[in-house]
Every structure is written in structure tokens, then in C-alpha cells.
Design a protein around this nucleic acid. Structure first.
Lengths: 358, 358
DNA sequence: AGTCTCTGCACCATCGATTGTGCAAACAAG
DNA sequence: CTTGTTTGCACAATCGATGGTGCAGAGACT
């Protein structure tokens, strides 16, 4: 505790030490000093003092004055999912590269919580907000708009500001077609063999379902309503739906379109309860690539959304002053079974194989 | 843009509207008004004005004055991993329940970046910092200590403040024993059949390796050094190590202890390159439960760390004024193959099965 | 009426950085 | 030597909320 109790150094401390005024110190340390015609030698002195005293600016003070904080927010539905966590990872890298500080918060897909969370972030004077997968993007928009906060939608679109989302119709088509074609031609899939589970009353689900139905009608010649089961985004609700189907038909459908990897976890829960069924005739197509899911013992075809592309596009669009509230589509990618793709973590450096190869 | 350009209301706006002074408004809105003997009716008036004008306090101003921000930080190695994302999810719930705002940031296991990130968080006057899985916890400690910031270590211990971590020795033992016992007694595992891959020169890896070796010596009577391959935390480094082993021996070890699910992704990458090998005699034990990994086509035994327990304990310990820098061990849990556990997301409400069961 | 005690609030300094403005001293031009 | 320009910086207001202090006016009591 030698000098640890000391408060952090301020520009006033440095101004006393350097014999200059606080405003001079401030200018030197925030880079505006040339504009203020501060002598090089004065700047040098102050910089070295700042160095030795470990000065760092108090961002609350700076933010209060400038009504900017350097914080950039990402509002997520949840953290605990590879799709959203890779979004967070990618978002963070982008924000850090701009010299700002990312602040990632989840709001559980609850419209009320989304708005409250946005309010909270606004009260910290965040500079921009990326609204990702919100259940009520326009509700969050109201809050942002009232505070004059730049914002943009990702993953699920709103109608008031631009949105960057996946082409879910095309993704749904791709995935459905891949499921159907994965079955041998001598035992082709029948329309009632292919079900869709999971998702909700949101834009992404609608589009995926639209793609699903379009391809079914096209390739299987029929598209019964009963095959669409938007059971929400909870794993357990999906599990219950699988249970219900199973107890009615004594088996699962041969082809499954699972609307999100969280729903897929519901399928796992179902399977854990039925360890003696071997699901040999099952093909699963699932939105949101997960490397482990891709290697499950039955064919799992996945869609990987272009996270890097979406984030990059969102950063590009949010900078445009008065961009029209249009939807920017980013194409997702079909991932065949047993595929191990690289992700945002591969960009990080690790130790250099200390003894991987002697 | 009707009233949207308006700046947010401040206590000064409300003071004019209500005819009281700013300090009265402040006291009413932050709850200290009884102490200041403000009349109930005055408070009522101000509260209703605040309501209709959608007043929310500027947290930077409040934070500047009180040198607290209401922000609680979590410093993670990475986001994109089920273990860390569930830590984030759980952490967030705890912080929110205390009426504060979580701020989750990753530092890529880079000591320099860990310190810089901590500095940044400190410049926002965060109230507490949870240092999770840091490569250099004591380095981060220095920074926190200098700023008088309460902090605690999670997942990887430091020596200066309390740490809440998993019992990795016991976990390593459990996992190793489970791998060995998973093989039939008529074709038991030989010492050189059981390798450990992944991990680094950190406390967790050391302890797991210690447990691994102890059990090998105990049950297999031998424990060759070559079976320990701490290839770091990157997926690709692990993949290279598997490649190297494979090109030397023409096969993988029958038993694999994989030090983290990210390393496990390296195994998947290896397998994607060797699609024609069928890994029927393979048993994998892996740290950090992932529901999809648990259902892979070969036996995968996993360890789930008690995330909720660790976070809860950390919040408990960090409140203690001058807690000794001891290590608090939390027991992890062995998860048999094909097990679907619930996680933090199951606590969230979802739609009520719109038509899961007609 | 005079003194005391409450009640109910207003005033003002403060947190640390930013930024528009002013003004000496140094220097140049005439 | 005088006027004008540039250099180099100091001053002071400001952002919005907080909290210590002070002080009128109402009521109580003698």
C-alpha cells in the first residue's frame, strides 16, 4: 500500500508539476496541442511527467464535458451461444481497432429489457449502439432516437434505421435443399418426413420458413402446414416438441430443419432421453454453425452466418449520416457435415508450439 | 425528429419546471431526499415531472462526482467459447440483479492487453473488476491496486488477492480415471495409449496435468513424459500436434485428455482431414463441457466447471473488506458421454409453446 | 415579545477534462 | 521607435450530479 492509496493523477497534478496550466496539460495529452500552438518542449515535458506518474485521463470527466464516452454498445439476446459469442468477439475486435471500448450486454430477447438496457447504456453516453437480434428493434430505436444516439440493427431488422442481416430466405432454401438432397434417391424424403422446429414470430424465422416451404414445394411437391413448428428459442420448448412428435409417431421425422443451435440443444436433450434409438436415418439441417454439432453421429448440415461480413457492413453503414432504413443482406454459407471451420479466435496469437513437435 | 433532437432532461431542467433547486431535484431522484427533509409533496411533484420528461440521470456526471460508475467489469480471455460465454451470461445476471451494469471485455490471453484493458476499464471508474482466466493476474492486480479498485481472480489464480477457481487437480483426476475406466477390461489402456493435449504454462493446466499423471501412475502404473503435450490454447496448434502424432504413429492415441474445448476444435480439424479413419477405439476426455461435443460419435467424457458456483462465490468474496489472497476451490462435475445439461439460458423465459402441442 | 427548535429547502463548491477567448511577450516590418 | 503579427500559453466557463452548509420561516415554549 506504499503509494497505492494515492488517487490517480489528474491534469491538475501535472499542471502543478510542470508549471503549466491545466488546459495546456489537457491539450498536450489529448493531442490537440499543435492546434493550440504549444511548444514542442513544453509538450515533451508534460508527456514525460504523464508517463512517470502513470497518468490516464478520467473518461467520465472527459465524457461529461464532450458528451461522448468512447463506449460502443452491442445489445445481444444472449451470450451463451456460438453465434452470438462470435458476434461479440468480432464486434470487440472492430471497436478496439477504432480505439474505443466495447460494451456487450444481453437482454434475453425481452422487449422491455431491451429498452431498459438501451436506456442504461445511453445514460453512460455511449457513442453508438449495435442492436443485435432484438425482439423489438423499433422499440429500442425510439429510446435511441430520443437520446440522439446513432444505432443500427443486426441479425433482426427494424424499420426505422438500416439493418444488416443474413439472407435468411436464401439460407433457408440452401439448407432445405441440402437436407433433401442428402437422402438417397432410392429412399427419397416425403413431404411429411421433413419438419421445421424452433424459431419464433420474427423476421429471420419467417424468412427461413418461407425458404423452407418454397423448396419443399419445389422439390417435394408438397408443403403441409403441420411440418412447421416454431416452438420458440428455448432448448426445452424444442425438446418438448420433439417429445410430442415422438410420442405421436413413435419416431422423429427423417429430415429436420432446426431453426437455431439453441433449439438443437433441445434435440440433444430429447436424444439423451432416448439413448436406445439410433438415429441412423436422420438428417439435420441447422441454422448457426457450431463446430461440435457439425461432427455429430448423424449428418448435420449447417448454415454459418457471415459474422465478420455483417459486423464490417454494420460499421460501414452506421457511419453514413442519414442512411435510409433499408435492409442490407449478407449471404450466409452452407456448411456440409463434418466440417471444422476457423473462427474469430484463430486471429489471436497463441504460444509458439512450445514442444508440439520435438 | 419532432422532439428527438432535444437533449436529455437534466436536473436543471426539472429544477426550473418544478421551481425547486437542482440539489432538491437531485436528492429526490437519487433517493436521499428524506435525509434532506424534502416535503413529500415536493418530491411527488418532481418525480412526476421526471416521469413525464423521461429523465434519466447522466451517469458520467454522477460518476465523476461520486467516483463510482455503477459499472462492474469482467475481463475474459475470449468470448467465443461455451465456458467463457456461460461465465459472461451468469456474471451479467448477477451484476444486473444488484442494479449495476456489467461490462464484459476480452483480452486474448495477452498479459500486455490484459493490463491495458484493465487500465481502460479503470479510466471509466468501474466499481469492481472480475479477472477471469488471465494469463498474468498479478500484472492486472498491480494496475487495479494502483487505482484502488476492488478485484478478484476467477478461473486462474493470482497471488495478491483472493481467487475462485475450479479444483483442477480433482477434475483432472476424475476425467483421467473416467477415460481409463471407459475401456473394456479385456483391452485395457496402456500407459502410452493415453495422451494429454493442450493447455499451457498456467495453474489450471499444471493442476490438470498433475491429476492426469497421478491417476495414470495409480491405475496404469506408468506415466511417460511424452504423453504430456501442452500445445497452448489455439485450435490450430492442437491440430498440428495431432497431425504430428498421427504421421509418426499412423493413428491417434486410444485415449485423449484434451485440455480445453478450443483444443478439442483442433481435434475436429484433424478429423475433418482424415474422414476415412473411423475413430472407433477412441475415448476423449475434455475440459469444459459443451453440449454438442458430448454427443460426438465417439465417447466424450467432459468436465463441467461450476460456473454459477464460481461466480456466486466470487461475488461473495469480493465484498469482504480485506480478504486474504487465498484460493477458493469449487468442485467441477464429471459429465458422462451423451449428456445434455441445462445452462444459464434455461433461466430465461421464452414464448409459451405457441403450438408445440395442439 | 423573545428565544429555541424544527422544517424545508437553496446555495455553492466539487469531481476532471475540454475549449473558446484573451493577452502578454517576442519578433518582424516600416 | 511604433505598429502589426505571431507565438505560447493562461483563464474561466462548462458538462450534470452530489452533498456539506447555511438560513429563512413556522411553531413551541417561557
Amino acid at each position: 500500500m506504499a503509494n497505492s492509496g494515492k488517487k490517480k493523477a489528474t491534469i491538475y497534478d501535472l499542471s502543478v508539476l510542470s508549471g503549466s496550466s491545466p488546459s495546456t496539460v489537457s491539450a498536450v495529452l489529448n493531442g490537440t496541442w499543435r492546434k493550440r500552438r504549444i511548444k514542442e518542449s513544453t509538450a515533451e515535458l508534460i508527456r514525460s511527467l504523464a508517463e512517470t506518474h502513470q497518468y490516464t485521463a478520467n473518461r467520465q470527466a472527459r465524457g461529461l464535458r464532450s458528451s461522448r464516452s468512447g463506449l460502443v454498445g452491442l445489445l445481444l439476446p444472449v451470450h451463451d451461444n456460438r453465434y452470438f459469442s462470435s458476434l461479440a468477439q468480432t464486434f470487440e475486435a472492430h471497436v478496439r481497432s477504432k480505439g474505443q471500448c466495447p460494451i456487450v450486454v444481453s437482454a434475453s430477447r425481452d422487449p422491455e429489457e431491451e429498452r431498459k438496457t438501451a436506456e442504461t447504456l445511453i445514460s453512460y453516453s455511449i457513442d453508438e449502439l449495435f442492436i443485435c437480434g432484438a425482439t423489438d428493434p423499433d422499440g429500442v430505436h425510439e429510446v435511441c432516437e430520443a437520446a440522439g444516439l446513432k444505432h443500427i440493427n443486426i441479425d433482426l431488422p427494424g424499420t426505422k434505421v438500416p439493418s444488416v442481416i443474413s439472407d435468411n430466405f436464401e439460407g433457408g432454401r440452401l439448407l432445405t435443399e441440402a437436407i433433401i438432397r442428402h437422402f438417397p434417391t432410392d429412399r427419397p424424403l416425403q413431404p411429411r418426413d421433413l419438419y421445421l422446429f424452433g424459431g419464433r414470430n420474427d423476421h429471420a424465422s419467417h424468412e427461413r420458413i418461407r425458404g423452407f416451404r418454397a423448396v419443399k414445394k419445389e422439390l417435394l411437391r408438397d408443403d403441409p402446414d403441420e411440418c412447421i413448428q416454431p416452438t420458440g428459442y428455448a432448448a426445452n420448448n424444442a425438446r418438448k416438441a420433439f417429445d410430442a412428435f415422438y410420442s405421436r409417431h413413435g419416431k422423429l421425422p427423417r429430415g429436420l430443419f432446426v431453426n437455431s443451435s439453441i433449439n438443437f440443444e433441445g434435440l440433444l436433450r430429447f436424444m439423451a432421453e432416448h439413448p436406445h434409438d439410433n438415429f441412423t436415418d436422420l438428417v439435420v439441417g441447422c441454422y448457426d454453425y457450431d463446430p461440435f454439432a457439425s461432427f455429430l453421429p448423424f449428418p448435420v448440415i449447417m448454415i454459418r452466418q457471415n459474422v465478420e461480413g455483417m459486423i464490417a457492413k454494420a460499421f460501414e453503414v452506421i457511419e453514413q449520416p442519414r442512411a435510409a432504413p433499408r435492409i442490407h443482406l449478407v449471404e450466409p454459407e452452407l456448411v456440409p457435415p463434418r466440417t471444422a471451420l476457423t473462427g474469430p479466435l484463430d486471429a489471436l496469437k497463441d504460444i509458439d508450439l512450445p514442444r508440439g513437435r520435438p
